[in-house]
Amino acid sequence: EVYKVKIKIERVLPNGEKVEEEITIEVEGMSEEELLALARELAAEPGVRIKEIEIEKLPP
């Protein structure tokens, strides 16, 4: 199964400015739980906050 994972994050820059970013990846052969863990890892940097995680199962 192939999933499209869209992660919206908010990053706080050293000057205090907040910037929103969106990361989209396609992943194959992982469960939804593994995808959530991967998304959290991607956003685990200091000053980064996850705003939204969207997981979509793509048709075969």
Rank of each mutant, 00 (worst) to 15 (best):
V12L: 10
K8C: 04
I25C: 04
E22C: 10
E45Y: 12
K18L: 11
K6W: 14
L36N: 05
I9V: 10
L13R: 10
L35I: 13
P14F: 10
E21I: 10
I23L: 07
V27N: 03
E22T: 12
K57G: 07
Y3D: 01
G47I: 01
L38G: 02
T24G: 03
E34G: 13
Y3M: 03
E22S: 08
G47N: 10
P46R: 15
E26K: 11
E22K: 04
G47Q: 03
A43P: 02
K51S: 06
L42G: 01
V5P: 00
L38S: 03
G47A: 05
T24I: 11
E21D: 10
V48P: 00
E54W: 13
P59C: 08
M30I: 11
E20A: 03
I9N: 00
A39F: 12
E32F: 10
K8Y: 15
P14E: 11
L13F: 12
L58R: 11
V27L: 10
P14A: 12
L13D: 03
L13P: 01
K4Q: 05
V5N: 00
E26V: 10
G29Y: 08
E26D: 05
I23G: 00
S31E: 07
A37F: 15
P46G: 07
E45D: 09
K8L: 10
L35P: 03
A44C: 05
E45M: 15
E10I: 11
E34L: 13
L13E: 03
G29H: 09
I25W: 13
V27E: 03
G47W: 04
E54C: 08
K57I: 09
N15G: 09
M30C: 06
V12G: 03
M30Y: 14
E34W: 15
E17Y: 13
V5Q: 00
E28R: 02
G16K: 02
G29D: 08
E17L: 10
G29N: 12
E22R: 05
K4V: 04
E56Y: 14
N15W: 12
V48W: 06
E45T: 15
G16P: 00
K8P: 00
P60V: 12
V2M: 15
L36C: 06
K6A: 03
E26G: 05
V19S: 05
E22N: 08
E34S: 11
A44Q: 06
G16N: 04
E17S: 11
P46C: 08
K6D: 01
E54Q: 07
K57H: 05
S31C: 05
E56S: 13
P59Q: 10
E52W: 15
S31R: 08
K18E: 06
E21Y: 14
S31N: 07
E1I: 11
K6R: 13
V27S: 06
A39E: 02
L42D: 00
E54R: 14
L36G: 04
G29S: 12
V48C: 03
E33Q: 15
E41P: 02
L36T: 05
E45L: 15
E10M: 09
Y3C: 01
E17D: 10
V48I: 09
G16W: 02
E22L: 08
L35N: 01
V48T: 08
P14L: 14
A44L: 13
G16I: 01
T24H: 10
L42N: 02
P46V: 11
L58F: 08
E34I: 15
R40W: 14
L13Y: 11
S31G: 13
L35R: 02
T24F: 11
R49E: 11
I23D: 00
E32D: 09
K18T: 12
I53C: 02
L58H: 10
L58D: 03
V48G: 03
E45Q: 12
L36Q: 06
K8F: 14
P59S: 14
V2G: 05
K18C: 10
K18Y: 13
G16L: 04
K4M: 07
P14C: 08
I50G: 00
E20T: 08
K8T: 14
E21M: 11
E32C: 05
E41I: 15
I23W: 10
G47M: 03
E41M: 13
E17V: 11
N15D: 09
P14I: 06
E54S: 14
L38H: 04
R40L: 08
A39Y: 14
P14K: 07
E52S: 09
K51W: 15
V12E: 11
K8H: 08
A44T: 09
R40V: 06
K6C: 03
I55R: 03
L42C: 05
K51C: 05
P59A: 12
L38T: 04
E21G: 07
R49G: 03
I53W: 08
E20N: 08
E21V: 06
K57A: 06
E26I: 11
M30V: 07
A43V: 15
E28K: 06
L42V: 05
L35E: 00
T24V: 14
E52Y: 13
E33D: 12
I55T: 02
I53G: 00
E21W: 15
G16V: 00
I55K: 02
A39C: 07
L58T: 09
E1M: 14
K57V: 10
R11S: 01
R40T: 06
A44M: 12
